[in-house]
């Protein structure tokens, strides 16, 4: 339970490692840049006096997409396989998915969010609340959609490169979606999911940081958040 008293000293707990924090902020930059440049590519408006702006912006958009792909792949790998110790098998974050089916957790969590409950529910087996877990699944699904459609769209621009190859692999998807024009629209829709997610995410983190006195917002910079001393069931 988070410490409800601002006067009482708190114990800090090192939660987010260097890589996690770096990848978080890199993704922030990437997603902002990708959205901005994506809107621009769809509707270019700068004057041609800026020589080759369309080429540069598109190239940097595609380059940022590759970085996003790399980071997402690492993160998905972590989700499935990362676990403490040298054991093999599914990672601990997968098993935390149990929280989605824990009705008591849903009730506690929603009570906390709707201000019916003061203290923050914590769970022995999961770092995430049920709603949070669901939100991250949606996040990663939309990241996957954005990346796959992006690879298809980038393929003709880098037809001899890696994107050309992945474009060939993803041809069936292109056909299923009905050609490049539709692929582009799905790319656009997935971007909107990411934008809305970001908005909610920022607020929820800030809110939980203050209301739960958990310092999670600071944790993404320093790595330390308030220790949940006595996790309840």
């Amino acid at each position: 339970m988070a410490n409800p008293n601002p006067q009482e000293p708190v114990r800090l707990h090192y939660t987010f490692g260097r890589f996690t924090r770096a990848s978080h902020w890199i993704r922030v930059v990437l997603i902002v840049w990708l959205s901005v440049s994506g809107f621009y590519i769809a509707n270019p408006f700068l004057t041609p006096d800026l020589r080759f702006d369309q080429l540069y912006i598109r190239s940097l958009h595609i380059a940022a997409g590759w970085f996003l792909l790399a980071i997402t792949l690492i993160r998905i790998y972590e989700f499935f396989f990362l676990k403490p110790g040298p054991k093999l098998g599914l990672g601990q974050e997968v098993s935390m998915g149990r929280i989605l089916f824990d009705w008591k957790a849903w009730r506690d969590q929603l009570a906390f969010y709707t201000l019916l409950r003061r203290d923050h529910p914590t769970y022995i087996y999961s770092n995430y609340g049920p709603l949070q877990y669901l939100a991250y699944i949606v996040l990663y699904l939309s990241l996957v959609v954005v990346i796959l459609t992006g690879l298809i769209l980038a393929a003709p621009y880098q037809s001899m490169g890696l994107a050309g190859w992945t474009g060939q692999l993803l041809k069936p998807l292109e056909v299923a979606l009905g050609g490049l024009a539709n692929v582009r629209i799905y790319h656009h829709i997935a971007m909107w999911v990411l934008i809305v997610f970001t908005l909610i995410h920022v607020y929820m983190v800030a809110w939980y940081s203050i209301r739960g006195r958990s310092m999670v917002m600071e944790a993404m910079i320093s790595g330390y958040k308030v220790d949940d001393a006595q996790p309840q069931k």
């Binding site: 270019p44 700068l46 004057t47 041609p48 800026l50 020589r51 080759f52 702006d53 369309q54 080429l55 598109r58 003709p156 037809s159 490049l180």
Partner: peptide
């Protein structure tokens, strides 16, 4: 290949013209 990849105006596209 796409129309866009063989288009004589492609240079203008990349130049933002």
């Amino acid at each position: 290949t796409r129309i866009h990849d063989k288009c004589e105006r492609r240079g203008n596209f990349d130049a933002g013209e």
